[in-house]
Amino acid sequence: MMLDRIERALVLAPHPDDEVLGCGGTIARLTALGRHVEVAVVTRGTAPRFAAEQVAAVRREAAAAHALLGVATTHYLDLPAVELDRVAQADINAAVRAALVASRADTLFVPFVGDLHRDHQLIFDAAMVAARPRGSDYPARVLAYETVSETNWAAPYLAPSFQPNVFIDVADTLDAKLNAFRCFESQCHAFPDERSIETLRALAMVRGSCVGRHAAEAFVLIREVG
């Protein structure tokens, strides 16, 4: 089982809450097993687009969510949110690489390259550079997670489609994931908004039913080195 091979994981979150939406149940499973999980929130909202009070509130929400899931360390890389396309790709690469090296992760969770949000795409690209299999300090496996209202909103047939080939059973940790997302009061909305508790539960049930489980999170395995 893949989880048996994961000792230290790093989850790259373009924005606070992406890590919970994409793999909150998996994080909870790993930490319940005594594994070390860190989260790197890559961007930070900046004025005038985001008020300082709003940014501080979201960080408090993230701290509460991460504590609930058992995240060991949260890194804030502080690159500009929704403006990553104005940052030199080399600088994004360097920031992601630094977080990866600091985490000493054997497993890297990344946003999917086909997500609608440009920040997600650029961070995926940076992760591929940071995790290049050179030397001996690269992660043994890289998995891309799905994010509601991003992964499924890209243009069909024009952007890469999310076709998962790894499913992690989160039946026992789904409630922990949903409670972690409830911590994000600024991001959690009423159904039928996709970023709702009902949608996350339904998606987990659908992904689980694909593989005969009550609930699962789905991933695209980018690479695994045995």
Score class of each variant (00 low, 15 high):
residue 85 D to K: 06
residue 64 A to D: 12
residue 178 L to F: 07
residue 9 A to M: 02
residue 50 F to R: 11
residue 69 L to F: 07
residue 127 A to T: 02
residue 216 A to M: 06
residue 157 Y to S: 10
residue 34 G to P: 01
residue 63 A to M: 09
residue 150 E to T: 15
residue 38 E to K: 05
residue 70 G to C: 06
residue 118 R to Y: 14
residue 198 E to G: 01
residue 15 H to W: 07
residue 132 R to F: 05
residue 118 R to F: 09
residue 89 Q to S: 05
residue 171 A to I: 07
residue 185 E to T: 11
residue 65 A to D: 03
residue 98 A to G: 03
residue 32 A to Y: 01
residue 99 A to R: 00
residue 20 V to K: 06
residue 80 P to I: 04
residue 77 L to P: 00
residue 101 V to R: 14
residue 134 R to F: 12
residue 46 T to S: 05
residue 71 V to T: 03
residue 158 L to V: 15
residue 42 V to H: 07
residue 215 A to F: 08
residue 30 L to V: 10
residue 24 G to V: 10
residue 217 E to N: 03
residue 197 I to V: 05
residue 54 Q to V: 11
residue 31 T to V: 09
residue 214 H to M: 04
residue 74 T to L: 07
residue 147 T to I: 12
residue 125 D to A: 09
residue 138 Y to A: 09
residue 3 L to K: 15
residue 223 R to F: 13
residue 217 E to H: 02
residue 99 A to K: 01
residue 212 G to K: 08
residue 43 T to P: 02
residue 199 T to A: 04
residue 208 G to T: 09
residue 4 D to E: 13
residue 41 V to A: 08
residue 64 A to Y: 00
residue 21 L to I: 10
residue 65 A to K: 04
residue 117 H to D: 09
residue 147 T to Y: 12
residue 220 V to P: 08
residue 51 A to L: 10
residue 162 F to G: 09
residue 53 E to Y: 11
residue 56 A to Y: 14
residue 6 I to P: 08
residue 212 G to D: 10
residue 24 G to K: 01
residue 1 M to P: 14
residue 76 Y to W: 15
residue 193 D to Y: 04
residue 195 R to Y: 05
residue 13 A to N: 00
residue 95 A to V: 01
residue 22 G to D: 15
residue 16 P to I: 14
residue 219 F to S: 06
residue 43 T to M: 11
residue 192 P to G: 15
residue 205 M to T: 11
residue 215 A to K: 03
residue 124 F to L: 00
residue 44 R to T: 06
residue 62 A to Q: 13
